[in-house]
């Protein structure tokens, strides 16, 4: 060890693990930061490596002196939490908590198991004879499903949204996406009658989720209706502020 930087040897290659380290340390800004965030959302290996660095660096926070925040911080937190539970956000919160319960039931399973679970949720009477990921679809009664594909930029990834009219259940598949730890993406229904956008909840990257739609959302779901995906702070659009930028959109069509 010396006091001066080691300038010998070849210039280090800036491979993905290196970029993940730069991102974890917080060295990046501007376009490089946006690229790293995007990669965390689309590249599971990169996301894993970012978490690897985070876990190694986490003990360094023990050197940061603890400090007592003002007592009104907790008051503000509990007011915000209680406000969000009661107020107009009730519908979104309700969806969120349903999703959470669903996810918890599914546990920390692989995406494949989640698909199987979603299939079983959809068609409780059908026999789960097909392996997840095969082309066979579960037996579905009555009305034809509405499907929407929402391509995410030019990443080749997309969200698949399926709605089964009679079941009032919607299936959102975000397989291949991973969380960037900085943003969430929220899905919105754009009612054909021009009324206010309705939240379909925050998208769970890398997962397939089934959710029940409240009647006031479900009645707006029809052939041709648009959905948009916005980029939001973690947790989804905060109350009282405008939604974030639209990053992708699609429309439902009957199949």
């Amino acid at each position: 060890m010396s006091d001066y930087p080691d300038n010998t040897g070849p210039e280090p290659k800036r491979d993905d693990p290196m970029i993940a380290a730069e991102y974890a340390l917080g060295l990046l800004e501007g376009e490089e930061l946006m690229n790293a965030r995007g990669k965390t959302g689309s590249d599971a290996d990169f996301a894993w490596r970012k978490e690897w660095w985070d876990n190694w660096f986490a003990p360094l926070t023990d050197e940061m002196a603890g400090m007592e925040p003002s007592s009104d911080v907790w008051t503000r937190i509990s007011e915000e939490v209680n406000g969000a539970r009661k107020a107009g956000g009730a519908q979104v919160i309700d969806l969120t908590s349903r999703l959470r319960r669903w996810q918890w039931t599914a546990g920390i399973t692989s995406a494949a198991a989640a698909v199987l679970m979603a299939v079983m949720v959809f068609a409780p009477g059908s026999e789960p004879v097909t392996a997840p990921g095969t082309t066979q679809t579960p037996q579905l009664a009555a009305a034809d499903p509405l499907v929407a594909q929402v391509p995410i930029g030019d990443t080749g990834l997309r969200l698949d949204v399926t709605y089964i009219p009679d079941s009032e259940k919607m299936l959102v598949a975000a397989i291949g996406l991973t969380a960037d730890g900085v943003h969430d993406h929220e899905l919105w229904l754009v009612p054909a009658d021009g009324s206010e956008l309705q939240s379909l909840g925050v998208v769970a990257p890398g997962e397939v989720r089934s959710m029940e739609l409240p009647a006031n959302v479900a009645r707006n779901l029809e052939n041709g209706v648009q959905i948009v995906l916005t980029r939001e702070p973690i947790g989804g659009k905060p109350e009282g502020v405008d939604a974030g930028p639209v990053v992708a959109q699609g429309a439902f069509s009957q199949v």
Binding site: I77, E80, A84, R100, Q103, G236
Partner: peptide, 14 residues
């Protein structure tokens, strides 16, 4: 800090 805990509440499932 407020933002951290409110987000934690919203997305504890992560």
């Amino acid at each position: 800090l407020q933002d951290v805990y409110v987000n934690l509440w919203q997305r504890a499932d992560r």
